[in-house]
Write a protein that binds this DNA or RNA. Structure first.
Lengths: 202, 202
DNA sequence: ATTAACAAACCGTTCGGCCGGTTTTTATGA
DNA sequence: TCATAAAAACCGGCCGAACGGTTTGTTAAT
């Protein structure tokens, strides 16, 4: 018998289960195969409870996206913190960041959502502020953690955004072609190309 | 009254209409909102004719993907040919390639398909050889058209693959954040960073 | 007792696949 | 050359499954 819980505790737990199940479902079967019923089943929550907390599918998606983006920004910031504290060098940072992208749940889940948003104006409207916030957090992390190695050519901020875009592109490619050697080659080249322009902040 | 056509002509025309409609539908409303009935309607073809030529939805998707990849490789190769013939410099090539990615139908259509394939083993299996072929065509174009500027560090082939991955990543980002100034900044930085390593083939 | 949380059945819609029938082209052979 | 059988292209309705949303009822907290 579970002990008595407050309404807030019950709500928070149910919502947490639902958002986790949403992210997991997006990761495992993709947006196209993600249904509200399936999410409720994964979460071990009745469909009624799901509709109570998140009346529409979009509410579920938007809330889960907020969760994912926050986790993503936190993960990257904590990696950058290790860099600033000297417990990670530039190479190590790139490796760890790429590993996070490819192995973590968040990247492909958010990719599914972004692609879905392309065909859904309302979803796009609701996600726009979230992505803007995410980018601001990124840029804050970059400017805290990196400086330009050659002032005047490419700023650390822009260079790191380039790196993130390479990761995004490679991750998309990895869906159909998971070629370990190819990615190794790319990653090493990326490090060589970018290291010229970026240094860890002093 | 249309004149008498051979069976081959009728088939070819119907298939062409269907594949064009498929690509257009993926581009405009995304994979999630693309239905076989919708494709037939766009193509101006009966549902029966559609099932005759492409029995399953996957047959349509796979055939359309083949078409798109071929067009993509051709477009990029013809741009590279302009570069080789001196009618385009490296900057111009980057600009034109990026424009193709962002403005053309093929990129977002193929992104929809790749993401859909992530959650569909059979689709992934059928698309794998197509993407392999596309990459081979890319690499052929790269090695025909570019050489390393600083031998020994980063090969032209790898550098150009990096560029394509940046484009992919930026295009995904553009779905939720179409910030012209940001993309300009990225593109200029990319040109500056890559020009160090790559030159048009002599 | 009132309200929030939870439960489950129900409904209208859409989708992909299927199938029986029709029209157009092609192959055949006298 | 021409009737005709065969094959290919085309048509449109039908079906079961799955989905998202709604609604009505029950349990737990306040």
């Amino acid at each position: 018998m579970t002990r008595r819980r407050t309404q807030d505790e019950r709500s928070a737990e149910t919502r947490r289960l639902l958002l986790e199940a949403t992210i997991q479902s997006l990761m495992e079967v993709g947006y196209a195969n993600t249904s509200t019923a399936g999410i409720a089943r994964r979460a071990g929550v009745s469909r009624g409870a799901q509709t109570h907390h998140y009346p529409g599918k979009m509410d579920l998606i938007v809330a889960a996206t907020g969760e994912m983006f926050a986790n993503f920004a936190d993960g990257l910031e904590s990696l950058a913190a290790e860099l600033r504290e000297g417990r990670l060098d530039l190479d190590g940072f790139f490796e760890a960041a790429w590993d996070n992208v490819l192995k973590g749940d968040w990247f492909y889940s958010s990719l599914e959502i972004i692609v879905a948003a392309r065909g859904d104006k309302e979803l796009r409207r609701q996600l726009a502020p979230l992505i803007l916030d995410l980018h601001e957090k990124f840029e804050a992390t970059w400017s805290r953690s990196f400086v330009a190695a050659e002032p005047g050519t490419v700023s650390a901020r822009v260079a790191m955004n380039l790196v993130m875009n390479v990761f995004r592109g490679m991750a998309v490619q990895a869906v159909l072609r998971r070629d370990e050697r190819y990615f190794r080659e790319m990653l090493d080249a990326l490090k060589a190309v970018i290291a010229v322009h970026v240094r860890p902040a002093p």
